[in-house]
Amino acid sequence: MGTSMNDTSSAGAHSHVGAAVPVTAAPGVDGRGAVMLLRIVAALACLETLVQGLLAGLLLNGDVDSIDAHGFNAYVFEILVFLQVVAAVLLWRRNRWLRWPLMAAVGILVAAFVQTFLGLESSLAAHAALGVALCGMQTALVLRAFLLRAEKSVTAA
């Protein structure tokens, strides 16, 4: 007569919270090398956000010497994010319909520059908040990059 909260069939009349949503396979993208490059650089940049958080925590705990490492690591992160943009451009050039990696990578790069500016200006509240946001944005990009299905190149070299 009724449906349970775990009923995921289409026979139920109502949609339930937590019901499974069918996922269709994402279309394959051209360029295994570009996909792999994006995945590697994005994963390394994601790890850098965690290192930045650790270094910031050390600084907040009173280890004033960690500020130099935190500053240096910020530039390492920016270089990785720039390389992430390059990888996203390479991927986009082969798959003009696939715009989200490029938009996300450019957005993260802009946010990283703003983050560095806020840190240099000692705007710590905004700097800390944007740092947490950058960690989340970078994690989301990595997760989505690993969901891309790379196919053999369809264009002749």
Rank of each mutant, 00 (worst) to 15 (best):
H16T: 03
H16R: 07
V17D: 14
G18T: 00
A19G: 01
A19S: 12
V21N: 13
V21H: 11
A25C: 06
A25R: 10
A26G: 06
A26D: 11
V29I: 03
V29Q: 09
D30M: 05
G31W: 09
G31V: 04
G31C: 07
G31T: 11
R32E: 14
R32V: 13
R32T: 14
G33C: 07
A34G: 04
V35H: 02
V35W: 07
V35Y: 07
M36P: 03
L38A: 01
L38P: 01
R39E: 06
I40D: 15
V41T: 11
A42G: 01
A42M: 08
L44K: 15
A45Q: 02
A45D: 00
A45R: 02
C46F: 15
E48K: 09
V51I: 13
V51T: 12
Q52L: 05
L54P: 00
L54E: 04
A56P: 00
A56G: 15
A56V: 04
G57A: 03
G57H: 00
L58M: 05
L58Y: 02
L59T: 00
N61R: 00
G62Q: 05
G62P: 03
D63S: 13
D63R: 13
D63I: 12
S66R: 02
D68V: 12
D68M: 13
A69Q: 13
A69W: 09
F72A: 15
F72E: 10
F72H: 12
N73S: 13
N73P: 02
A74F: 03
A74S: 14
V76Y: 10
E78C: 10
E78N: 08
E78W: 10
L80R: 11
V81T: 08
Q84V: 07
A87S: 06
A88Y: 08
A88D: 06
L91Q: 01
L91H: 09
W92V: 09
N95T: 02
N95R: 03
R96F: 08
R96N: 03
L98D: 01
L98R: 04
L98K: 03
R99N: 10
W100S: 07
W100V: 00
W100D: 08
P101G: 05
P101T: 03
M103N: 12
A104L: 12
A104E: 09
V106D: 03
V106M: 09
V106R: 02
G107M: 08
G107A: 05
I108C: 05
L109I: 06
L109K: 02
L109F: 14
L109Q: 08
A112E: 08
A112M: 04
F113R: 08
F113E: 13
V114I: 14
V114P: 02
Q115T: 00
T116C: 10
L118C: 02
L118V: 04
G119Q: 09
G119H: 04
L120I: 09
E121M: 11
S122G: 13
S122H: 15
S122C: 14
S123H: 15
L124N: 05
L124G: 02
L124P: 05
A125R: 12
A126Y: 14
H127W: 03
H127P: 02
H127G: 07
A128D: 10
